[in-house]
Design a protein around this nucleic acid. Structure first.
Length: 202
DNA sequence: ATCCCGAGGG
DNA sequence: CCCTCTGGAT
């Protein structure tokens, strides 16, 4: 598929830009990234992970202790409460490790379908195309789907690309959405996908 | 459908 | 000022 070839050339080895040193840290960073820029998350997590390096450390904290580290990310009260509860459940139910099934991940507070799919792919190499605001927007513009629900968009995309490329496609579309096919003023003149895009602007 | 929410861009 | 940012829970 032409879109896949263009993405591979433009974003070779695309992967998450969220700073992390373990599956636990990736899970926390991904929860924090909801409705936030990865930049704001990456500015907060070094200090957060220095103070709470693993699930055990975070499980012993209170939400009020966590809030100052993540306040500038936004939605901080909900996220602080979710992260502490999440860490406590990792310790209580999974020996402090991150579970490797989507069902188990989605039972954790603050973790929905998108976050679970991202963590499985990025941390454990489980194939899947997570659909966030960028992937949804680009899929619409490229007319790769007509669906609106993220799970359905994901299934449509997975039917279009080889399974071994699913995780790459997710990250490449996110990067392309972040830097080129932006929500407000897409830079169609600099877009490697423009030849294949029905929505391109002159 | 609504709420959570700070920060940067246009 | 308004829109957007790798959403999830109610």
């Amino acid at each position: 598929m032409a879109v896949l070839r263009a993405l591979k050339e433009a974003y070779p080895g695309a992967r998450t830009e969220l700073k992390h040193n373990s599956p636990f840290q990736l899970l926390v960073a991904t929860v924090l990234s909801a409705q936030a820029t990865d930049r704001s998350v990456n500015e907060a997590t070094p200090a957060l992970f220095a103070r709470f390096p693993d699930a055990k450390a975070l499980a012993e904290a209170t939400p009020e202790e966590v809030e100052p580290y993540i306040r500038r990310i936004g939605l901080y009260k909900t996220k602080a409460k979710n992260l502490v509860a999440l860490a406590q459940r990792l310790v209580a139910e999974y020996g402090g490790e991150v579970p490797r099934s989507k069902e188990a991940l989605m039972r954790l507070p603050g973790v929905g379908w998108k976050t679970a799919t991202v963590v499985l792919g990025a941390a454990f190499g489980v194939p899947g195309i997570a659909v966030d605001t960028h992937v949804a927007r680009l899929s619409r513009r490229l007319c790769l789907t007509e669906a609106k629900r993220p799970e359905k968009i994901g299934r449509d995309l997975e039917s279009l690309f080889p399974k071994e490329d699913w995780v790459f496609v997710h990250h490449a579309l996110v990067l392309h959405g972040r830097y080129v096919c932006t929500a407000r003023r897409p830079r169609c003149g600099a877009c490697v996908l423009a030849p294949h895009c029905p929505s391109r602007e002159a």
